[in-house]
Design a binder for these strands. Structure first.
Lengths: 331, 331
DNA sequence: GTGAAAGCGCTAACAG
DNA sequence: CTGTTAGCGCTTTCAC
């Protein structure tokens, strides 16, 4: 059994050639005579050779690693995104370091330092409360970055049209006859929040109604099931009496529905619910959830593509998937 | 605005000391005079210095990176596990490279090569169909590995007592009066499958019944919602008429319940369902799912701990959480 | 306490 | 086509 790790030198010795030739076999095989190449390849095989990525990167100055900082890997939205990224990176033999900040600035700072030390080729960033700081930190470090799921004039980005998403969701609720709609929103700094809100307002105005009467916004500290639940409790206590709730994502919707159940309100007859992202579990919930579908896989792919090749940026279109949570007919 | 990346040399020049001193500040600060240290630290600050991980690893011979190969990051089970791992790694300033093989040997081979090239300090492995090959490949490469969620005599491992888990699940179903129980199982090579089956058989024998009459096993190609659904279809067609189904994990259970719904069977009155893992979504499904809870976070932590410190290995105890899917009283 | 210098494994430029 | 060699940024003796 071969011992530890073999180096190019070992391979060269075993094959009776120089390290330069071994390197050529690795990087420009066409420049090496077939016979020599065969010898070298055989030696590699026998010695179980794997090139040392550290040395390689040190020399090359740039690594084949890309980082992605997301808010919560527990949310399948981000794992789907990550798959899209990985698939694209694999094409060019790069790897992903996936970092879940959990919206904790200390964790985030640690990951940022780490990615800088790794010399990542770039970082893919998902919008969250500290996005701006993060982007400027990256710029200061001279690390290219791409903003995912958000669009920006002064930054490379791949986006989804959240105005359209918000509009579709609220137009649907209006069509179902709802006139008091609660929006369980993310932080206002999030572009997604602002855009979806704008879409919601658009939809209401297009229906000839007054947004300030029809829509009420509750901002959630974090986009988790628990905060969704708390947000709904707060809204119910206010006495406004909404008949529908539009949630910033499916996990928030899950929390909201949990609370509705707890307080004996039926979905959708007492309260209609619409989520966002259309996670695979949306269709399997206690009441199947109407949700705005995002093309997460493609989004991840596009972001990685943009980083690697500087492809012009993309704007995806979301699509409303109607289920029982907002439509009794589907019960 | 500082340009690109500063090296120890730059820092040394800026601080008016030698690179050796800079390195000392980094690695053995106590050996450096306070005044000198302050100067160096200030220079680092100004130049926005980050040590180059490649160079460091190249020199050290071993990296501060750990790999984990799991079957499907889309399954929250694995992301929870990953968090546990990351949390432990953070303590010793290591990073995780999370690889989702999707049970595809080509993907897996790619990741294995990649981890070897990265010179990872070790790999944490989750059982799947090709586990044995993977472990021997790692051994051949001289990379330490820890088997997660499975126990082994001749391998470092952290496990959960799946015999107990299987026993608890099936004992519960028997107590509910079920006498024809379907087991939607994983591949037989999976230790988890064998252990849970053993637990199920134990429970049946303890109740004075005949396992061959009470239990029927259907082996699923993959542990996905789709395969769970297909497995159930197959079982229903066979005409045996089970009244309960024990699923290898919650995602499989989700697929099974989808099929029950489709064919108009009520849960739990026509068919009781028990899952495994107790994902956060188990409680939120159309019918809240009874499930065997695993301590995923702790499991991940323990695995990373074992790799880093050679702590003696652990065996966790799972716990059955009963919900409506197997108990009308909770309806 | 601090500096000088060697060397980790690899690549690329150059010589033969 | 193949060999020789310098050097990427860092750590670590070993002198001073």
């Amino acid at each position: 059994m071969t011992p530890q790790r073999a180096s190019v030198k070992d391979v060269a010795a075993a094959a009776g050639v120089s390290v330069g030739t071994v390197s050529n076999v690795l990087n420009r095989p066409e420049r090496v005579a077939a016979r020599t190449r065969a010898k070298v390849e055989q030696a590699m095989e026998e010695l179980n050779f794997h090139r040392n990525a550290s040395a390689r990167q040190l020399r090359a100055g740039v690594s084949r690693t890309v980082g992605a900082i997301v808010m919560d890997v527990g949310n399948p939205y981000y794992t789907e995104l990550a798959r899209g990224i990985e698939d694209r990176l694999a094409v060019d033999d790069h790897t992903l370091i996936l970092c879940s900040s959990d919206d904790d600035p200390r964790r985030e700072a640690r990951f940022l330092r780490l990615l800088a030390e790794q010399g990542v080729r770039g970082v893919l960033v998902t919008p969250m409360s500290t996005t701006k700081d993060r982007l400027s930190a990256l710029r200061r470090l001279g690390i290219p970055s791409v903003l995912m799921d958000s669009s920006s004039r002064d930054h490379a980005s791949v986006g989804v049209d959240h105005v359209s998403g918000g509009r579709q969701a609220v137009a649907h609720l209006l069509a179902q006859g709802h006139r008091r709609i609660l929006f369980l929103a993310g932080q206002e700094e999030l572009q997604q929040t602002r855009h979806r809100l704008k879409g919601a307002v658009d939809a209401i105005q297009s229906a000839g109604l007054d947004p300030s009467e029809v829509l009420k916004v509750v901002t959630l500290p974090a986009l988790t099931a628990n905060d969704g639940q708390q947000g709904l409790i707060k809204a119910l206590e206010s006495g406004w009496g909404p008949t529908a709730v539009f949630c910033m994502n499916d996990i928030v919707a899950l929390g909201a529905m949990r609370e509705l159940r707890r307080s004996g309100l039926a979905v959708p007859s007492d309260m209609a619910v619409v989520g966002y992202d259309d996670l695979y579990l949306a269709a399997e919930l206690m009441t199947p959830l109407t949700s705005v579908r995002q093309p997460m896989r493609q989004l991840g792919w596009a972001a990685a593509d943009l980083l690697l090749t500087d492809t012009p940026h993309v704007l995806f279109e979301p699509e409303l998937i109607v289920r029982a949570s907002s439509d009794f007919l589907r019960r």
